[in-house]
């Protein structure tokens, strides 16, 4: 399995554990009388599962197993793929940090972090389309 696939898959597993941990505290908030700010994690929590875990798992496996482009260039541009990995994770971590704060303190000057997160994830998503497109073929 190529190194980049291992990174995507392992990062995915870390997000999965983080998502279950965080979701316990969010769900246990009311019955255990925990502070209300925990609910501000709700939207990003969903994305730890769907972007952090499942989407990264898919990209990692696809990069490894999808049909090769050619013998000389089996998987496409590896550097481009690493940039996608970095953008997706920076984007999601920025969202994890900034979205709850923006919800709790709408006047705090943190909007730039959400915008940066949106741009990073958008570029990563479009990058995945460009990266995997030539690998989707009959063989």
């Amino acid at each position: 399995m190529p190194r980049l696939s291992r990174m995507f898959i392992k990062a995915g597993m870390l997000y999965l554990v983080a998502a279950f941990t965080l979701s316990f505290w969010v769900v246990a908030r009311a019955p255990l009388g925990l502070p209300g700010w925990l609910s501000a994690f709700q939207p990003v929590l969903a994305h730890l599962f769907v972007v952090g875990w499942i989407t990264q798992l898919i990209i990692g496996i696809a990069w490894w197993m999808f049909p090769k482009i050619t013998k000389d260039n089996p998987r496409g541009d590896v550097r481009f793929a690493w940039i996608i990995f970095a953008l997706l994770n920076i984007g999601l971590l920025l969202r994890l940090a900034a979205e709850p704060l923006v919800t709790l303190y709408p006047d705090a000057p943190l909007g730039w972090a959400l915008i940066a997160s949106a741009i990073c994830q958008l570029l990563a998503g479009w990058g995945v389309v460009i990266l995997l497109w030539p690998r989707v073929k009959e063989r």
Binding site: T55, R95, E99, V102, L110, G111, W112, A113, L114, I115, S117, A118, I119, Q121, L122, A124, G125, W126, V128, V129, L132, W133, V136, K137, E138
Partner: peptide, 28 residues
């Protein structure tokens, strides 16, 4: 499979764009 996976990739590109739009709209 090639049709379904390509349609899935296009959905990824479109869905992420909608998400990025909403996230930006939460900021400004």
């Amino acid at each position: 499979s090639t049709w379904m996976v390509r349609a899935a990739l296009l959905s990824l590109g479109f869905g992420f764009a909608l998400g990025a739009w909403m996230l930006t709209a939460k900021a400004i």
